[in-house]
Design a protein around this nucleic acid. Structure first.
Length: 617
DNA sequence: GCAAGGTC
């Protein structure tokens, strides 16, 4: 096998795109060690293109440090983890070695971000091992389009070790901190209650998973602390334009019952009210912004009751089967290379969306879609790439996949649709010198809601009246209400907060939620995150001893340090040591207070794993 | 058996 140039991409789809855009269309696909490789000719040279499916290497401690029982977790802060090939990556490594032996030149076509750059250096390490003289070039592209890819191979970059080192530093500190705290917590508990853990279970800490838990627990504690209060309000039933409407005292509920009674007494016998204000305001509601990963997950949770982890799994499946675009993206701007009008037209004969597309979209084409303002410079917003019938998707992928596909298609069509117009209505009636009000809502123009019912507001249409009109008052009564505690955090809110604090990346946020569920720290019921006693015990005890490792800002602070490596302000070793130093202090503080911690955790673990209640979880 | 980040 003779190869001149080897293209290495992060995923098979990109490797395929490189082959297609750089060849004259004649591509031979051959499997090498089970990995598809695309061969083609370019400028009289033989090219091969391969996708490696993410990272090839991982950090791990030297063998002798991986015995939990015989190593003091504190020692982990003082050793340097080593890079190792991942078990699941061996097939790619072998294919790279076979191809790399022959090649003169390698084009590093990894994603244009810090992780992609670090994967590039993993590839370099592997290929130098088999072919020391090989030349490396970095192709930098911001979209997987012909234009971007051709431009990338016209003008190469140098691989940037600073970017890669940021990712490598993150991997090292995450492993060290995670392993040290996880082992310490687990051993601590085991020492006190030797057989407390079922096989394969342990207590974990992580700089993403634990702050997520804390957010959930914090809300649960607010609920516990919440004290109900009684509130009193007055409700007047009025006959307005033949409609019986219930108006509430405009100044809102009162805390003192006597005050409410006083007003009631003063106006009890009023039979007529005067319309003080009649307001009907039109408001435009724009279509949703194009869909990125987080929004897909949030909407799947809110509107379809599908958890974020499952939503991304399903989306991945739909993507692999060519039905939707790449599902891991931050972007909310359609790039000019994607012909949204053409894609929409493709749904013109679809049994679910066809008539909407024909009546509401095609006549207005070409349409400029709604755009957001986020761009990860790597992937477009999530959109359908091929129309498929309900029947086909349900049969092949199941009903949930259909629901998700349906959401994605409708969302896409909504971004091409007209805005909706809503009329916010308000009527205020004066009854014996006291004001009572009612709010209404009318959808004046359905707009995008016609195709996108998700989040469509409910209507309550008030009659049209004018100020000064008189209305009949049927009755006035005192209504007693209780204040309600805030609800548990919804999964959609958790995702939003993770984004706000920079916990995890768009592709991993659902993982961190999932980890907490797996570890039995919280459950999700009816879209809401409810901590278990174990989750409550873990988050509250950790927080009482070392709040620094639990609070949602932890990850952001680490990121702020790590970014200095990529900027060239600090050496990677310097930053790794700095972060490890800080966490070693937290570690010592935690361990010196471990008596309380162990006791509480053991108690909670008994409940979660060994009580009758645990069967339900 | 640890984490979080890629991707399948």
């Amino acid at each position: 096998m003779k190869i001149d140039v080897l293209v290495v991409a992060e995923k098979p789809g990109v490797a395929k795109a490189f082959a297609e855009f750089l060849s004259n269309g004649r591509i031979r696909v051959e499997k090498i060690g089970g990995v598809p490789v695309r061969f083609f000719e370019r400028n009289g040279e033989v090219w091969a293109s391969i996708g490696v499916s993410g990272h090839l290497m991982d950090y791990d401690f030297p063998e002798e440090f991986n015995s939990w029982r015989s190593v003091d977790p504190r020692q982990l802060f003082f050793i340097k983890p080593k890079q190792k090939i991942r078990k699941s990556s061996w097939k790619y490594v072998k294919a790279l070695q076979i191809l790399g032996k022959q090649a003169k030149e390698v084009i590093l076509a990894l994603d244009a971000d810090v992780e992609g750059e670090s994967i590039a250096f993993e590839v370099i390490k592997i290929l130098r091992g088999v072919n020391p003289g090989i030349r490396f070039k970095r192709a930098w592209f911001n979209a997987v389009t012909k234009q971007d890819i051709l431009r990338a191979v016209e003008k190469f970059r140098e691989p940037d070790p600073k970017m890669a080192n940021k990712a490598f530093a993150r991997m090292q500190v995450d492993l060290t901190i995670g392993a040290a705290f996880t082992r310490a917590l687990t051993l601590l508990v085991e020492k006190k209650a030797p057989k407390i853990f079922p096989r394969g279970k342990f207590i974990s800490y992580g700089p993403c998973q634990t702050p997520v838990l804390y957010l959930v627990v914090k809300r649960a504690l607010e609920r516990e602390k919440f004290k109900k209060k009684k509130l009193y309000t007055l409700e007047a039933t009025a006959l307005i334009e033949g409609k019986k409407l219930k108006l509430a005292y405009a100044k809102g509920p009162l805390e003192k019952k006597e005050e409410a009674l006083k007003i009631l007494k003063a106006i009890r016998d009023e039979k007529v009210g005067v319309i003080k204000l009649a307001e009907y305001r039109h408001r435009e509601v724009l279509p949703p912004e194009p869909l990125n990963t987080i929004e897909l997950e949030r909407r799947a949770s809110r509107f379809l009751n599908i958890r974020s982890k499952e939503a991304l799994d399903i989306a991945e499946d739909l993507y692999q089967n060519g039905l939707i675009s790449y599902p891991r993206t931050e972007t909310t701007i359609y790039p000019p290379t994607i012909d949204v009008n053409k894609i929409a037209k493709g749904f013109g004969q679809h049994s679910e969306y066809g008539s909407y597309v024909r009546i509401h979209l095609i006549p207005r084409m070409p349409i400029s879609p709604r755009q957001g303002n986020e761009d990860d410079k790597a992937h477009p917003p999530i959109h359908p790439v091929k129309p498929a019938s309900r029947n086909f998707i349900v049969k092949k992928f199941g009903i949930k996949a259909w629901k998700l596909y349906d959401l994605i298609v409708r969302h896409f069509l909504a971004t091409l649709s007209r805005e909706s117009v809503i009329e916010n209505q308000r009527i205020v009636v004066d009854i014996g010198g006291y004001e009572f009000k009612i709010d209404g809502l009318k959808i004046v123009r359905e707009g995008f809601y016609k195709i996108y019912p998700f989040g469509k507001p409910g209507e309550r249409i008030l009659p049209y009246v004018l100020e000064g009109d008189l209305v009949e008052i049927k009755s006035i009564r005192l209504v007693e209400r209780e204040t309600k505690p805030p609800p548990f955090l919804s999964e959609a809110e958790v995702l939003k907060l993770m984004k706000k604090y920079g916990i995890g990346t768009d592709a991993t946020m659902q993982d961190h939620i999932h980890t907490n569920i797996q570890r039995k720290y919280f459950t999700i019921k009816n879209k809401r995150c409810i901590p278990t006693n174990l989750g409550l015990a873990l988050a509250t005890t950790l927080h009482s001893i070392v709040p620094e490792i639990v609070e949602p800002e932890v990850r952001g602070k680490m990121e702020a340090e790590l970014v200095r490596i990529a900027k060239g302000e600090k050496q990677p070793e310097e930053v790794v040591e700095f972060i490890k130093d800080n966490f070693l202090k937290y570690y010592d503080k935690l361990v010196s207070n471990s008596h309380v911690l162990a006791e509480k955790l053991v108690e909670a673990l008994r409940q979660v794993y060994w009580s009758k209640e645990s069967k339900k979880i």
